[in-house]
Design a protein around this nucleic acid. Structure first.
Ligand code: FES
Ligand code: FES
Lengths: 153, 153
DNA sequence: AGTATACAGGACTGACACGGTCCTGATTCC
DNA sequence: GGAATCAGGACCGTGTCAGTCCTGTATACT
């Protein structure tokens, strides 16, 4: 199914929620309550996001978390990378020789086209864009038509 | 890591291999040998691809598999869909109400932007493009630059 | 100073999907 | 008729993921 993990899913929900009211310190239980996500999971994810530099934390009483940067300056690619590691749909990251089949593989090196396509897709969406909900969903289902994507390489 | 399953990985290798010499009937053991993949897995995957209409099979002695269409007319999106089901990076396919958190979820409906971006990326690459290796890899690593992807909706 | 609050960083566990194997039919060519 | 080959399952071990919990450390308030 090419799924992201629930960690990442939750992480994005949390970040999106925080993006709605930046400059506000929120603690873990509060955040869990507002997003209806299990507290331990929320806590775990927040710690990761702090370590990866996407969130700033403040300890002690009245402590909490807040975005380390404005929502517009955080891309989905960063978020996913922080929570899942390098963005690559296949085993063979890049065109290095880390793959066991490398010598005999027909698609060797071809894959990163798809990988970069995905990377760029994620890099093109900022956290802010996940929050603002002005447009009323202009019927965007267009699968099957000519792809609007120009893969440079 | 946002990985595709090995099934799909193998499947693409197999299809790519077949695309190299279309109009040729190849049987499973032969194909497994040429791609250096485990035979039972190859067999399993080939069956799926036949059922999904991407391959044509021919039984009996001198039987085998061949592409059902020219390589240029098969997109990666089809292949992945055949082997993994609907292409969606998240649980909540489309904007239906199939999600448990739907009512309280901040990113509700936002996700399919990313989903469609991925879909279009995969739809834009044909099987033929995975095979022909004329260009010598024009240094395509450009992550970090302005995304070249225009998400229409 | 002392205490309550909240983050930091792990270790730990059950459930489940995935990778891989194998067996029993159906179909075609020689 | 017999051999080769595909068709369609059932089956199982393993690894990863979702989720929990425990111990330590830093901060604010009294
Ligand atoms: S499977 Fe790794 S190089 Fe092809
Ligand atoms: S998690 Fe399903 S709608 Fe948001």
């Amino acid at each position: 199914m090419i799924r992201i993990t629930k960690q990442t899913d939750y992480g994005i929900v949390l970040l999106t929620h925080l993006a709605g009211a930046p400059e506000r310190h929120v603690n873990a239980p509060e955040l869990a309550g507002e997003t209806h996500l299990p507290l331990p999971m929320v806590s775990k994810i927040l710690k990761i996001l702090v370590r990866e530099g996407l969130l700033a934390s403040h300890r002690g009483v009245k402590g909490g978390y807040s975005l380390s940067r404005p929502p517009g300056a955080i891309s989905m690619a960063e978020v996913v990378t922080a929570l899942e590691g390098p963005i690559a749909i296949t085993e063979c990251i890049d065109d290095n020789g880390g793959c066991e089949h490398s010598t005999a593989c027909a698609v060797r090196g071809r894959w990163h086209r798809i990988n970069t396509a995905l990377r760029e897709a994620l890099a093109g969406i900022s956290l802010a864009e996940m929050t603002d909900a002005p447009r009323p969903e202009p019927k965007l289902v267009t699968l099957g038509g000519r792809p609007a994507l120009a893969i440079t390489a």
